[in-house]
Amino acid sequence: MNVFRLTGDLSHLAAIIILLLKIWKTRSCAGISGKSQILFALVFTTRYLDLLTSFISLYNTSMKVIYIGCSYATVYLIYMKFRATYDGNHDSFRVEFLVVPVGGLAVLINHDFSPLEILWTFSIYLESVAILPQLFMISKTGEAETITTHYLFCLGLYRALYLFNWIWRYYFEGFFDMIAIVAGVVQTVLYCD
């Protein structure tokens, strides 16, 4: 654990909670892409299946459970509790155009051809593009609310901090995960937009 990774994780957590609180407090999910949130729930679910197979640390386990829980809570608020405020007409990105190629890529390029590892790879690739429905929605409606901008900023910051984390880990631990790094760079570039 280094300072970049910790602040990256906390920034990620802040983004998730900012979005959840915004929807809860305003009783509205206007301007939020439900499709992006479903993709993030899918990302966390497929990535954290190792909760069932390996224990890394209490921190690691708790954060995973919190991320999964919050992402499902967000999806629930958008599609169930406050679905009357969900702007489905503007959330028209075709997610199959992301999920299918990303699934194919995960099968082709991975560290190990095993179910858990392919799902982990799938989640890494999917996370890098999961925000596209949200960006697409903003481009259609023309304007993002301030709080949505804060959410996007925290998510982008999280990825940028993880890049510094990987540079740190490469120098001090010799750690190098090509799949995570390439996907992380793609993701960071998308958020710069």
Binding site: I56, N60, M63, D112, W120, A180
Partner: peptide, 10 residues
């Protein structure tokens, strides 16, 4: 498990 990759990041 043995031979399994361990992903320690979130």
């Amino acid at each position: 498990a043995e031979g399994e990759l361990l992903h320690d990041e979130l």
